[in-house]
C-alpha cells in the first residue's frame, strides 16, 4: 500500500491540505468548490481532458483542472470572474460547433451540456454557429449515432467496453472532420444493459437507443428544476 503524502496548496487565498498527486478536480470538490466539468467522470485515470470546461488558474496559468495532479505550494484560482467567463466560453463554443437542438432532443433534461448551459446562465453562444452538417448513423442494431450532438469528449471511445472488454466506439478522421463511429459487429452483440450504459455514458444525445426516447416525464429527469421545466 502506497503511502499518502499530504501537501499544502492555496485555493482562492485559502490554504488547504490535500493528498499529493490527486486530481485537482477531486481536490477542489472535496474542498467544496464545484468546478464545472463535462468530459470528466470519477475515477478515470488518466483523465480524458478533452472538453477544457474545468479551466482554473494555477500559478498564473489557465489549465484544465482534471488533467492536473496537485503538488505542494500550488496557487489555484477558481473564483475569478474571468475564469467563469472562460468556462462559459468553452461551453458556448461546444454549442456553436455542433447542432444542439435541445427542444427535440431525447437527452434534454438529462444532457450534461444542456445542464452546464443552464448552470452558467447561458442564453446563446457569443460565437457564430457553424451549422455544419453532421451525419446520423442508423446502421446499429440497437444503438444509433447522432453526430450533430457529439462533443468529442472521448468517454465512449476510451471508457466504454463490451462484456468481453473490447472497445466498441472509436474516432475516425482528424481535426474538424473527426467523427465517432462504432464497431457494428460488437454493437450487435451488446446486451441490453450495455446499450443503456453506453447511452448513459454519453454526456449529450449523440448515442441513442433506437426506437426509444422521451420515456421519462418532465420533472423526473436529472436536471429538471421548477424553473427549467417549462422551457
Amino acid at each position: 500500500m502506497s503511502e499518502v503524502t499530504k501537501v499544502g496548496i492555496v485555493v482562492d487565498g485559502r490554504s488547504i491540505e490535500v493528498v499529493e498527486g490527486a486530481s485537482l478536480v477531486d481536490v477542489l470538490r472535496l474542498a467544496g468548490i464545484d468546478v464545472p466539468t463535462l468530459c470528466w467522470t470519477r475515477d478515470v485515470d488518466p483523465p480524458l481532458g478533452t472538453c477544457r470546461v474545468c479551466a482554473v488558474r494555477v500559478d498564473g496559468r489557465e489549465v484544465a483542472a482534471c488533467t492536473l495532479a496537485v503538488r505542494a505550494g500550488m496557487q489555484v484560482e477558481c473564483a475569478a470572474p474571468d475564469l467563469a467567463e472562460l468556462q462559459q466560453g468553452v461551453v458556448e463554443l461546444l454549442f456553436a460547433e455542433g447542432n444542439h437542438f435541445c427542444p427535440a432532443c431525447e437527452k434534454s433534461g438529462d444532457c450534461e451540456l444542456q445542464t452546464m448551459g443552464y448552470r452558467m446562465g447561458m442564453t446563446h453562444s457569443r460565437f457564430p454557429y457553424r451549422f455544419e452538417s453532421y451525419s446520423l448513423d442508423y446502421r446499429g442494431q440497437r444503438l444509433m449515432l447522432e453526430r450533430n450532438r457529439c462533443i468529442h469528449c472521448k468517454r465512449c471511445t476510451d471508457l466504454f467496453t463490451d462484456d468481453e472488454g473490447h472497445r466498441v466506439f472509436c474516432f475516425l478522421g482528424k481535426g474538424s472532420q473527426t467523427q465517432v463511429v462504432m464497431d457494428l459487429e460488437r454493437e450487435a452483440k451488446l446486451s441490453e444493459h450495455k446499450c443503456d450504459e453506453a447511452v448513459a455514458l454519453c454526456p449529450v444525445g449523440a448515442i441513442l437507443r433506437k426506437g426509444r426516447g422521451f420515456d421519462r416525464p418532465i420533472g423526473t429527469r436529472a436536471s429538471d428544476t421548477p424553473e427549467r421545466m417549462d422551457r
Partner: peptide
C-alpha cells in the same frame, strides 16, 4: 426527413 421516427412527435410540434 432523416430524423429518427420516435423524435417526430416532439420535433414537429415545434
Amino acid at each position: 426527413q432523416g430524423r429518427p421516427y420516435w423524435e417526430a412527435p416532439v420535433l414537429v410540434q415545434r
